[in-house]
Design a protein around this nucleic acid. Structure first.
Lengths: 140, 140
DNA sequence: GTTGCTGCAAAACATTTGCATGCAC
DNA sequence: GTGCATGCAAATGTTTTGCAGCAAC
């Protein structure tokens, strides 16, 4: 995903371009890591003094619905990042400090010995948590 | 984990036996599935008319700290269940409707091809979500 | 009697919604 | 001008905390 594709998607679906939306998309493009709503507010509050959580939440929600952002939940907080790619299923190793990620291309669901009898499976979550070298160095 | 072992653990650590704690432990023993704080309140409110979330949350938190309960977070809610066993690392397949679980004995972290360079790994989560046969039948 | 346990009330925190105004198209 | 977008304020839902009284030991 990138800003151009995201804007296309917005237009396709009949949503409008606004400065705030563009800046939010640019932020996710620049950062390329998981961000919480408060991170987005923090990043944009200087430019938009009146910017409120309402708008951020509404747009985060819209972007996820459109497949522009992917989400996860960490420590009770919803976090968002640019969708990595729409065509390849993958998982993430996530830095608990800064949200930086690393792809994991293996999916445990591919294992032939995975048994799910008695359940109708609708999804799964596989994430590895840790600290990236940078955050690890700063913290300790 | 079972009620007896949980009570031992409580006594070991100098915590007291109270009716509410015993009933909470018995509930987790009987149910053997993930429950949210509100589920616990729902189950015990008839017996204890004045029972409040404070007590439930405090005890849930205490039980987790002592390793009596294991936790997960689903749709922004913390959920708790009796620890399955302390000696065998495993994951769960979870019913999104009722919290019922099925063990998954495979752990993707065991894979030798898992690459985590650039990160200090501190944990991981692997869960499969779905609907158990019972809930599936009732819903559709 | 000491110490932990509980209820009450209030607060904290992330998130959502109603409504009136404002802006993109 | 129409309809989506935004800000404000208020509400929601879950979880936490201070404090005073109560119960387990």
């Amino acid at each position: 995903m990138n800003v151009e594709k995201a804007l296309e998607k917005l237009k396709e679906e009949g949503f409008k371009y606004t400065d705030k939306r563009m800046d939010m998309l640019q932020l996710f493009s620049d950062e390329s890591r998981y961000l919480a709503a408060k991170d987005v507010l923090e990043a944009l509050k200087d430019k938009y003094s009146g910017l409120s959580f309402d708008t951020i939440y509404r747009n985060l929600s819209l972007f996820s619905d459109l497949g522009i952002l992917e989400t996860t939940e960490l420590a009770g907080e919803k976090k968002f990042r640019f969708s990595c790619s729409t065509d390849h299923h993958h998982h993430h190793l996530i830095c608990l400090e800064c949200g930086k990620t690393k792809h994991i291309h293996q999916c445990p669901m591919d294992s032939s010995s995975m048994t799910t009898e008695g359940f109708k499976v609708v999804g799964h979550k596989f994430e590895i948590y840790g600290y990236c070298d940078k955050c690890e160095a700063q913290t300790f």
